[in-house]
């Protein structure tokens, strides 16, 4: 069998999607924080988007079954907070996928000490900026609910964190 490489593992993990946002791979989400390869044994360091994220176990299972499907014998997944996840870890490709999915991508971290950034998210449908924050909590821990005054539709934003 061919020697495993980090690039190989990363390309396989492109197929493992966030269980709550099926257009976004775990790689683009930025939660894969490390890959260690020893022969046919692979250790993955995973960090949750939110500490209480209920999708974490599902992510672990899906990573394991994906890699086993590619012939990796032994998969170990550890949860780490060494480099805590922030929404800046979402790749540019991931942000485009989020917008296409109808979910406003998070603005970059540097901006969010200003409350206006939360209050005036950009509508993912019409790009309108006349929007209102309706609730800092939404259907999942990582989303907030907004209303666009331009196209008069409610939308969700992936929260900057």
């Amino acid at each position: 069998m061919t020697t495993l490489s980090q690039e190989m593992i990363l390309s396989w993990l492109e197929d493992v999607k966030d269980p709550e946002i099926p257009v976004l791979s775990l790689v683009d989400l930025g939660v894969i924080r490390g890959i260690d390869i020893a022969g046919n044994h692979v250790s993955i360091a995973l960090t949750p988007t939110f500490v209480g994220c209920p999708a974490l176990d599902m992510m672990k299972d899906e990573i394991t079954s994906n890699l086993k499907g590619h012939g990796v014998e032994d998969v170990k997944i550890s949860v780490t907070f060494r480099e805590p996840w922030t929404s800046d870890m979402i790749s540019e490709k991931g942000k485009i996928a989020l917008k296409k999915f109808g979910l406003a991508p998070p603005p970059s971290q540097g901006l969010i000490d200003d409350i206006d950034v939360l209050e005036h998210a950009i509508c993912p449908r019409c790009n309108g900026t006349h929007t209102e924050l309706k609730n800092t909590f939404g259907p999942t821990l990582c989303r907030s609910i907004h209303y666009c005054l331009d196209c008069r539709e409610a939308f969700e934003q992936f929260k900057p964190i």
Binding site: F50, V51, G52, P54, F137, L141, I145
Partner: peptide
């Protein structure tokens, strides 16, 4: 409804944080 969701979400956060 919004407050129902807010308190439920904060519950999920806090219990997750206690777990960690």
């Amino acid at each position: 409804l919004e407050e129902d969701i807010a308190f439920s979400s904060m519950a999920q956060d806090k219990i997750g944080q206690s777990y960690a």
